[in-house]
Design a protein around this nucleic acid. Sequence first.
DNA 1: GGAACGTATCGGTATTGGCCGATGTGATCA
DNA 2: TGATCACATCGGCCAATACCGATACGTTCC
Lengths: 119, 119
Amino acid sequence: MNELVLAAKALADPTRVRVLSALRSGELCVCELSDALGVTQSTLSTHLQVIREADLVTTRKEGKWVYYALNSEAKRLLKGVFDFFADELASAPLLRRDADRLKKRLDEREDGACCRGFS
Amino acid sequence: MNELVLAAKALADPTRVRVLSALRSGELCVCELSDALGVTQSTLSTHLQVIREADLVTTRKEGKWVYYALNSEAKRLLKGVFDFFADELASAPLLRRDADRLKKRLDEREDGACCRGFS
DNA sequence: GGAACGTATCGGTATTGGCCGATGTGATCA
DNA sequence: TGATCACATCGGCCAATACCGATACGTTCC
């Protein structure tokens, strides 16, 4: 029962839903998430902790960056959940705005480098 | 997004998962739930409030009793969620115990009367 | 080595949430 | 009408959590 409860906690906050929604479009590092959602880095970091404790993500360190990605179970779970609430989510302004900003942010990626990857 | 978050909150506590799990076997009144789960009436009532706010249940008053039942959307949602976590939930001692006690409790129902329905 | 950056963690504060006993409310029954 | 029962709500208490700024840690680059 604990797994279910932890997963539910991960979805029980709007900011975390936004994080998980953003991660559905692929692996992201913290600064990309932070920019896309417009939340403080420390706030985001604690939300990511909750999501980690629910075992929904894998993390990968590359240079100074930490990339978060949904694991396969989380992908299946979130597909189910987001499909179920598809109508509601489709009309959520925050999610739309996040997606827009994320898209712009990702367009700035250069050769797989996440953050202002000027060499 | 709010619907999703409220539903997740409803599932984000072990006691509430037990309540929802019990309700999956049919309409129940508060005292039946209270007996089955072995939780205080006031505690149960506040959990039911959270579940109500998530719009997962309908309530029906009959005499002094209030019967709670999952609405159709909640049934679909919980089927999805409980199926997803089926392995984990199957080995949850609390849920097993609740189910046992609920069964015994329901066997004492007489002619649809919920609680010690002595006439 | 030192500066700059990305991320995690800490300290503090305000809010929320769980639990309980007590009280309020409405229905039943004598 | 008064007693009793089922349920909801309140008030108090404590733990958990959301948020932020500040700090710590590790990496990269000079």
